[in-house]
Amino acid sequence: MINFLKKIPKFIRDSFFILLITLLTGFLLYYFSGSGFSFKETSPGESDKKEVPVISIDETKSVLDHGNVLFVDSRSKNYYEKSHIKNAVNIPADSHLDYSFDFLSDYPDKTVKIIVYCDGKTCDSSHITAGFLKDLGYVDVNILINGWSLWKENHLPVFSTEN
């Protein structure tokens, strides 16, 4: 056994021991910390929320040029009514349930590419609305993080009631 170990290059043996020490330390820490470590939630709703892929503004532009895409604005109605991405529909994250029947009847094709956006770097409403759309059965749901700001920065078409 020792001879066998000696035949393995030292850097591989060392790496193996380091990984082993890490695993053991991890298990001991986890065992003795009780609930000291909090992990990412994996409840069904949260899991859906995180499984929604993020799309970049460049990819969005490419999709816009080459295919059929539906933009969903997850901001509140006030913001949406002032200005939004051209042809985007509004499903505010805080009242998304009110919109489900209308949305399902207006967009029966569950394979339509959907890009959900809100505004701000830490905005979470697009994740909530995107998770809701996935719950409704739409399969190609994507999130454009900080979408509204990025959209304006890139001078892409908007609807606006403001001058």
């Binding site: 890490t22 991890g26 470590f37 990412k40 995180k50 499984e51």
Partner: peptide, 17 residues
Amino acid sequence: GYLINETAFFLPLLEIV
């Protein structure tokens, strides 16, 4: 998804070790 929490827990530990 099933590897994300494990990686988040063990990777920093590996860095410290």
